[in-house]
Design a protein around this nucleic acid. Structure first.
Length: 428
RNA sequence: GUGGCCUUAGCUCAAUCGGCAGAGCAUCGGAUUGUGGAUCCGAUGGUUGCGGGUUCGAGUCCCGCAGGCCACCCCA
């Protein structure tokens, strides 16, 4: 037994699993290019206050899930690993004066996030998100662009039955009155509330709306709905977002109880979920509008909207749907030799081919030829080059491992023959 | 953070009532001095997750801890 293992809630993504991840990263990057979202990268840790202010002090993410970095001295700044991406990006937007760029600033990136949570399948302490943000456009069309982009990712990843839950949670003009009304409603039924919900009523009454307690179902169904209490501006905005999404053909389901767990959201809130999925980790991603966040982090009042998609859950869902991951890359050529001890020749041949742009491997151990060929076949190489006595006449054997045929090739023609064989294989 | 189930070789799993820790796969080698993914033979691989207790004797029973999973909480 090894005495060390990966920390709780973290995983090693081994070579066999990496192609599936790289495929998703490639899809994200290609979508970003086509939709015009530039790449950005921010530190994986920030001043704790960035998250406390940005995400919200009363949220679970900050209250109990923040990975804090132990300060090295009394004067040390307080740091924390990022639990999500938006706060750091908005911090960068303010710090570097990105409001001087043409608005909105469209950015995206893919990277690890950290939450000190109890791990479960599909829920890790280090997990990966694809984060997309558009800062500086009040909407509503940009809202639809963002939602459609997120949905499109699942389409191109090949994951079926991904739907969009959509809601508006109002803004500073209409939400406070709604929260007051909702609190009064639940308080008037206090005796029917389960213990947990009773305590939440004081801290975050909106959360009662997505309680899973069956006792709550009837109460929630009869509760006042934010969508019926929106101010005129929010109402107009929400209707327009829906109209734009309809025009794009995005499958949307209105979900009046969708509230989301971060304080910074205003108006548009959405979640991507898998219809008919087993288990609790059905939320594949989510996002919303955050019109107050830039100001909260020290910038001028600036609207924004974005989403984060959980790649771990997409990988998991693709495996459940038995959608095949791409195979690891096979080498075009595998260099073998009759003399097991002559690693110099094998390595030199492979290196020359590599310098010529060819994907080449060589057996650098001391196996005899039959073992080297076995290795070549198992690694899926198209060709094997066999170095032997023919070298004295300037020839090597070029063996096509798939056709099980071989012929001598002059050294000068080797690279050209391999490239030609690879091309005809690709196109044939 | 709460409750439940689980943990034996790199992986999947055996081990009777508490009585010598095993198999398949994988890895490496041999059968085969310059020709392949098969086959046969062999080898490597274990403080039975960790620590304590009961016992002549613990993989097996008891306690604690860690890790994984499930349901909560919450979220991606």
């Amino acid at each position: 037994m090894p005495s060390f293992r990966a920390p709780r809630g973290t995983r090693d993504l081994l070579p066999a699993e990496r192609p599936a991840w790289e495929r998703l990263a490639a899809i994200a990057s290609d979508l970003a290019r086509r939709y015009g979202y530039a790449s950005i990268e921010t530190p994986i840790f920030e001043q704790t206050a960035v998250f406390e202010r940005g995400v919200g002090e009363a949220t679970d993410i900050v209250e109990k899930e923040l990975f804090r970095i132990q300060p090295r001295s009394e004067e040390a700044e307080s740091w924390a690993l990022r639990p999500e991406g938006t706060a750091g990006i908005v911090r960068a937007y303010v710090q570097h004066g990105l409001h001087t760029l043409p608005q909105p600033v469209r950015v995206q990136y893919l990277g690890p996030m950290f939450r000190y949570d109890r791990p479960q399948a599909g829920r890790y302490r280090q997990f990966w998100q694809w984060d997309v943000e558009a800062i500086g456009d009040p909407g509503p069309a940009i809202d639809a662009e963002i939602v459609e982009l997120g949905h499109r990712f699942y389409v191109e990843a090949g994951l079926p039955n991904v739907k969009v839950l959509l809601n508006s949670i109002g803004d500073g003009a209409c939400r406070p009155a709604y929260v007051t009304e909702l609190t009064a409603y639940f308080a008037s039924h206090r005796e029917r509330l389960p213990e947990l919900e009773r305590s939440r009523l004081a801290t975050n009454p909106l959360r009662l709306l997505d309680s899973k307690d069956p006792e709550m179902a009837a109460l929630i169904a009869a509760a006042p709905r934010i969508v019926d209490r929106l101010c005129d501006a929010c109402r107009t905005h929400f209707d327009a977002v829906r109209a734009h999404l309809d025009a794009l053909g995005v499958p949307v389901r209105l979900e009046p109880s969708l509230v989301r767990g971060l304080d910074y959201y205003t108006r548009t809130a959405f979640e991507f979920y898998r219809e008919g999925a087993e288990g609790q980790q059905q939320a594949l991603g989510g996002g919303g509008r955050y019109d107050g966040l830039v100001q909260l982090l020290g910038g001028k009042p600036t609207p924004g909207i974005g989403f984060a998609l959980g790649l771990d859950r997409v990988v998991l869902a693709l495996a459940e749907e038995r959608i095949a991951a791409p195979a690891p890359a096979h080498p075009a050529v595998f260099v073998t030799g009759a003399d097991p001890a002559d690693t110099v020749s094998r390595l030199r041949f492979a290196t020359d081919l590599r310098h010529g742009g060819i994907c080449a491997r060589a057996d650098l151990g001391q196996r005899r030829l039959s073992r080297q060929l076995e290795q070549a076949a198992r690694e899926g190489a198209h060709f094997a080059v066999i170095l032997g006595d023919e070298l004295r006449e300037g020839l090597v054997q070029l063996r096509d491992l798939r056709a099980a045929s071989q012929h001598p090739v002059p050294l000068a023609d080797l690279a050209r023959e391999i490239e030609r064989g690879e091309q005809s294989h690709r196109h044939g």
